[in-house]
């Protein structure tokens, strides 16, 4: 079906574009004035968790546009929708999906950390501890999911 191919192509472009856009944001975050040039500001864990928060946020938002298009396909009947979401089930799509899960988990935990600072300013005195706790929580939640998803994709790949 040509409609499915079109929508599939659009979803593919948008999802890959989401990743590239997130990378572009990373570069933009540290762009300096023309009369200033220099290495990236050293900063601490706070700066890097902030940068990662923005990149994951923008990446998830950009993916959402592709997701809107694939959901839109359901309006044309189940066949078109099923054919479109087939894309997500391809073994080579799994790493992207794992990245999306990772970005979402990170953004969620880090978001909660930032909100807590707003309500309890004294927490800011122990910000490094909270940042590391948040990173550990993210890793603990992410690793099992990644192992399961990548394992599944590996079984369906032509290499296994």
């Amino acid at each position: 079906m040509i409609g499915a191919k079109l929508i599939e192509g659009l979803v593919f472009t948008l999802t890959v574009g989401a990743g590239l856009f997130a990378l572009y944001v990373l570069i933009g975050l540290f762009r300096l004035r023309k009369d200033q040039k220099g290495p990236i500001y050293k900063g601490g864990v706070g700066q890097w968790t902030w940068a990662a928060h923005r990149i994951t946020g923008v990446g998830i938002l950009a993916f959402l546009f592709g997701h809107i298009v694939d959901t839109f396909a359901v309006g044309f009947g189940p066949e078109l929708y099923n054919e479109t979401v087939e894309l997500y089930k391809q073994w080579w799509f799994a790493p992207g999906e794992v990245l999306l899960i990772g970005a979402t988990i990170y953004h969620a935990f880090n978001g909660v950390r930032i909100i807590l600072f707003d309500f309890w300013p004294a927490m800011a005195l122990k910000q490094k501890t909270f940042a590391y706790v948040q990173i550990v929580l993210t890793v603990v939640a992410f690793v099992p999911v990644a192992v399961i998803m990548l394992g599944n994709a590996w079984e369906h790949s032509p290499f296994s």
């Binding site: 900063g43 601490g44 864990v45 706070g46 700066q47 902030w50 928060h53 930032i114 800011a124 910000q127």
Partner: peptide, 9 residues
């Protein structure tokens, strides 16, 4: 402010 904490350091 997005609490990057560079200022405090």
């Amino acid at each position: 402010c997005r609490t990057a904490f560079n200022c405090t350091a």
